[in-house]
Amino acid sequence: MMDIKECTCTVNNHKQCAGRVPVFSSLDGTELSQVVSLIVQKWYPKDAFIFMEGDIPRDFFIVSRGKVKVYGYSPEGREQIMYVLYEGDFFGEGNLVRDKEADICVQAMEDTVLCTIDKDRFRELMIKYPQISLKIMEVLCQRLEKVEAMLRKISPKDVDSRVGMLLLELVQKYGRKENGAVCLELHMSREEMANSIGVTRETVSRKLALLKKAGIIEFLEKRKILILDEAALHDML
């Protein structure tokens, strides 16, 4: 059984966690302190489940350190990653409005620290500070747009588009300009990349090799790619 621990963290740790979350960005210092007082931090080792399909989660979760994947399964039983969430991202918003068994799994991709707030206490915050609800809706709309964009690309003949879309999404989030190119540190394994766009790991590896051969990307050290021709990735969409 995975060793999940409640962190013995300071109030300052909690404040740093809450302060980096966009949904709390509109709160002043006093209001943010009220949020901080509700936070319990928990440590999850790599591969630990935060919750699984069929569980009834009772918390709102914020990624303080590390990363988690949110996924379900296809009718064939294949893992399908919907989101990978990093520091400052949140999940568990569905728990705030209903007591329902989860139809997704959330799992730590590396050692991860989560800030958790009991859903009943978080509901009270949303009533007291309606701007939090508006920020949550804004983020959820962005996630929905991402899923809709991915669904438009899901077809057997459109693997190139899916790979291009994934690389551009990672560039937007993690790319760093470097001598006219973009250096991209991958936060996902080939398997995780494949699961996020509904293809096999072998397909992702093959497509990346073809992009390298075409002079569009270059492999650097482990999990680093140099994007030499970003426009060519856009042309793949």
Score class of each variant (00 low, 15 high):
138 E>L: 10
153 K>P: 03
98 R>V: 11
57 P>K: 06
19 G>D: 10
81 I>D: 00
36 V>I: 15
16 Q>H: 10
102 A>P: 12
31 E>S: 08
12 N>R: 06
39 I>D: 03
140 L>T: 02
54 G>P: 12
105 C>R: 11
59 D>M: 04
35 V>R: 03
20 R>V: 08
76 E>P: 10
111 D>R: 02
49 F>T: 08
29 G>P: 12
66 G>E: 02
150 M>T: 08
105 C>V: 13
46 K>N: 00
117 I>A: 01
124 E>F: 09
72 G>P: 06
45 P>V: 02
87 E>D: 01
70 V>N: 05
116 T>L: 06
107 Q>Y: 15
100 K>D: 06
145 E>W: 05
47 D>I: 11
155 S>Y: 11
12 N>T: 06
11 V>G: 01
97 V>M: 11
105 C>W: 13
29 G>D: 12
94 G>V: 07
20 R>K: 11
26 S>E: 14
62 I>F: 14
21 V>E: 07
64 S>V: 01
150 M>W: 07
122 F>W: 08
109 M>S: 01
38 L>V: 12
65 R>L: 03
130 P>Y: 06
148 E>C: 12
34 Q>D: 03
72 G>M: 07
114 L>M: 04
52 M>K: 10
117 I>K: 04
67 K>Q: 01
127 I>P: 04
75 P>V: 15
66 G>N: 03
153 K>N: 09
14 H>S: 09
136 I>H: 08
81 I>F: 00
130 P>E: 07
47 D>C: 13
65 R>I: 02
63 V>R: 00
38 L>K: 12
33 S>M: 09
86 Y>N: 02
107 Q>D: 14
24 F>Y: 14
16 Q>L: 12
32 L>F: 01
35 V>Q: 04
117 I>S: 00
84 V>K: 03
134 L>P: 00
14 H>L: 08
133 S>M: 11
106 V>D: 13
103 D>R: 12
48 A>R: 15
51 F>H: 15
14 H>D: 07
149 A>F: 02
66 G>K: 04
68 V>C: 15
39 I>W: 10
12 N>V: 05
54 G>I: 11
122 F>D: 01
64 S>P: 00
91 F>L: 13
154 I>G: 02
58 R>G: 03
59 D>F: 04
72 G>S: 08
145 E>R: 14
147 V>E: 00
118 D>A: 05
123 R>W: 11
119 K>G: 08
147 V>C: 01
111 D>N: 05
15 K>I: 15
94 G>M: 08
54 G>F: 07
96 L>C: 06
32 L>D: 10
47 D>T: 15
69 K>D: 01
32 L>K: 14
60 F>V: 06
13 N>H: 14
126 M>F: 08
140 L>R: 05
111 D>Q: 02
40 V>Y: 11
115 C>S: 15
127 I>D: 13
36 V>W: 01
43 W>I: 02
28 D>K: 13
102 A>S: 14
130 P>L: 07
129 Y>T: 02
59 D>Q: 04
30 T>V: 09
74 S>Q: 15
35 V>H: 02
52 M>H: 06
138 E>S: 11
56 I>E: 02
84 V>L: 03
11 V>I: 09
21 V>S: 12
